[in-house]
């Protein structure tokens, strides 16, 4: 296993940023994620207006990796159409798993090596899975 600096400054900077933390008021969709092994949870709320993700937030009690990853998630999806957002989230999860190369200048670049630490992969992808659920929820007939 090659080394990967989990606690490089860039990741910690993201972890410290409070951008996108908490819950969106009047969300159109909600999605929840949970890591079974440690019990960490994330609740993603989104507001989609005219097919665009205008606001998204993550409420999460996790470790620095999951907090950093959540901040990157919000930066990735806000302002995108639902389809673009879904695509970007899907690609990021594939990068975390080591199944595809990270695009140059992608927000998630600092976490691209997380697949080398399988035990931490779940921390990184927690909120991203919850986001997929929130986007689906936003488009479900009840909304």
């Amino acid at each position: 296993m090659t080394s990967f600096d989990l606690y490089q400054d860039l990741i910690l900077d993201y972890a410290r940023s409070t951008r996108g933390r908490g819950q969106v008021e009047h969300p159109t969709g909600r999605g929840q994620g949970r890591v079974a092994s440690c019990g960490d949870q994330a609740l993603v709320t989104v507001r989609v207006e005219g097919g665009i993700v205008t606001e998204a937030k993550v409420d999460c009690n996790g470790c620095a990796v999951s907090l950093a990853s959540a901040a990157m998630l919000i930066e990735t999806v806000e302002g995108k159409s639902v389809d673009q957002a879904r695509h970007a989230v899907g690609s990021a999860i594939a990068v975390f798993r080591g199944e595809r190369e990270v695009a140059s200048e992608a927000v998630i670049e600092p976490l691209a090596g997380i697949h080398r630490l399988p035990s931490r992969l779940k921390c990184a992808s927690l909120s991203w899975h919850a986001m997929l659920a929130a986007l689906d929820d936003s488009e479900s007939p009840g909304n």
């Binding site: 989990l6 606690y7 996790g62 620095a64």
Partner: peptide, 11 residues
């Protein structure tokens, strides 16, 4: 968070 302590110790 406990993960961060363990993650740092692992490094």
């Amino acid at each position: 968070h406990p993960h961060d302590i363990a993650g740092w110790l692992d490094q």
